[in-house]
């Protein structure tokens, strides 16, 4: 058993320290050490995307990153999407479009969708499908998810326009 390492990282905006073994993935550190169980374990091989989190703004499979690698990084998980208990636009659109059934894939889809919209506020359907290609859903199919993301993008854009409009 190798000894535990102290890791300091920003998780969902909060700087925290945690202990983990080098063999533990970031996903294990999030779920088992930090009790942030929103990120799901699916395949453990980087195929399904259920464990997707943002690391310094980039979507990665947290099952394919070591917890110790989080040192000095900024991590965003699905728990970081809502603000003071109020769901984000993306989360609301997933509910509105019924873009989930069992929900296991949903946290990963939300993070991948956030990663896309953060970079590209006006994606085409093709771009949405490409950005979500690393996330697998075995219940709904993808149409509702893609529609939810496109609708969220439109909503976020119109909010921005409202804010930017002269008074």
């Amino acid at each position: 058993m190798s000894k535990k390492t102290l890791v300091e990282a920003t998780i969902n905006g909060e700087t925290i320290e945690f202990l983990c073994e080098p063999r533990q993935s970031l996903l294990e550190a999030l779920r088992d050490v930090l009790e942030l169980t929103g990120s799901k374990e699916g395949c453990l091989t980087g195929d399904c995307g259920a464990c997707t989190v943002l690391v310094d703004g980039r979507a990665v499979c947290s099952c394919l990153m070591l917890g110790v690698e989080a040192q000095g990084k900024s991590i965003v998980t699905v728990e970081g999407l809502a603000t003071n208990g109020v769901l984000s636009v993306l989360q609301n659109k997933f509910l509105e479009h019924a873009a989930l059934q069992c929900g296991i894939c949903t946290p990963g889809f939300l993070i991948s969708a956030k990663s896309l919209l953060d970079r590209n506020p006006k994606p085409t359907e093709h771009e949405v499908r490409y950005a979500l290609a690393g996330n697998l859903c075995r219940c709904t199919g993808y149409d509702k998810i893609v529609k939810a993301v496109l609708d969220a993008a439109a909503d976020i854009r119109s909010q921005g326009e409202v804010k930017a409009a002269p008074r």
């Binding site: 980087g46 995307g49 997707t52 990665v60 499979c61 394919l64 991948s112 990663s115 950005a131």
Partner: peptide
Amino acid sequence: IGSLQIQNR
């Protein structure tokens, strides 16, 4: 290579 998640790493 792989998905965006993979290409990011």
